[in-house]
């Protein structure tokens, strides 16, 4: 455990010692703010219309109309920012030769991979924490339910975990950061749009494609539902990607 934390700690320091953390967090904050403001205006308009309706005031739900779509929009931010976080994890170590230090230290490959994953996760959590500010305003001036907000964050954390673990795996395959970043981005995008084809496919294919789509599983979390189906998907996705990463690092040793 100490070893894992040492690696995670090093990764976090690495992010914050380089521009990566600031670019990722800043970029995410700007985009999130933009999404927030737009959805807020839209929500305001909707609630005005509802209030001025002939049938008397209608219930407008801030969770359903503002927070839930906002969480789904965060997925867009992740698509662009998380490849930046993971692209250097292994590639940079390989290019600069520091991988030799890690692989000749009394650490197991699993410890290294999990440490790196946790480091990325902490940076991602820091990025998400910026969005708490916006939601705090809703709690100050409105009366949203807090439980769906928590499940939404849990869903985002898990989805981000999938992206991070996948990015880590791609990064472990190449020495070139740009290649790692680009491939990670492409694979993220593929997992995102994989169910576009679902409406044209047969029922079985449709179900499979929908199940594979990373974003599809976020809907329930954003609505306040924790379904084990989605939990299993995210956790096994992360587990499998990390497993592949360990294998990739190990095979690299054999090939030299």
């Amino acid at each position: 455990m100490g070893n894992i934390l040492a690696i995670a700690n090093k990764e976090i320091k690495g992010y914050f010692a380089s521009p990566v953390a600031y670019i990722v967090i800043g970029f995410a904050a700007i985009l999130f703010g933009w999404f927030f403001v737009n959805l807020l205006y839209y929500f305001e308009q909707a609630s005005m219309q509802a209030g001025s309706g002939f049938q008397g005031p209608q219930a407008v739900n801030v969770n359903e109309m503002l927070i839930s779509p906002l969480f789904l929009n965060v997925a867009v931010i992740l698509l662009f920012t998380l490849p930046l976080v993971t692209m250097r994890t292994y590639s940079e170590e390989k290019r600069s030769g520091t991988i030799e230090l890690l692989l000749t230290s009394p650490l197991t490959d699993v410890q290294i991979v999990i440490g790196k994953f946790l480091g990325g996760l902490v940076l991602y959590a820091a990025m998400l924490s910026v969005t708490v500010v916006h939601l705090a305003f809703l709690f100050i001036f409105g009366n949203p339910e807090w439980r769906p907000v928590l499940t939404g964050y849990l869903g985002l954390l898990l989805m981000g975990g999938c992206f991070l673990s996948l990015g880590l795996f791609v990064s472990s395959l190449t020495k070139n950061q740009i290649v790692a970043g680009m491939v990670t981005f492409a694979v993220f995008l593929l997992f995102w749009v994989i169910n576009w084809f679902a409406s044209f496919a047969g029922p079985t294919t449709q179900a499979v494609l929908n199940y594979l789509s990373i974003t599809e599983h976020l809907n329930d979390f954003a609505r306040g539902v924790i379904d084990t189906k989605h939990l299993v998907y995210y956790v096994s996705f992360i587990g499998f990607s990390l497993f592949l990463t360990v294998r990739a690092v190990d095979s690299e040793r054999w090939r030299g």
Binding site: K13, G14, A17, S18, G97, T98
Partner: peptide
């Protein structure tokens, strides 16, 4: 074992 590879394995940002 202590190991110094051909290029010292340093992290530039540290």
């Amino acid at each position: 074992t202590g190991y110094l590879p051909e290029t010292p394995p340093l992290y530039p940002d540290m």
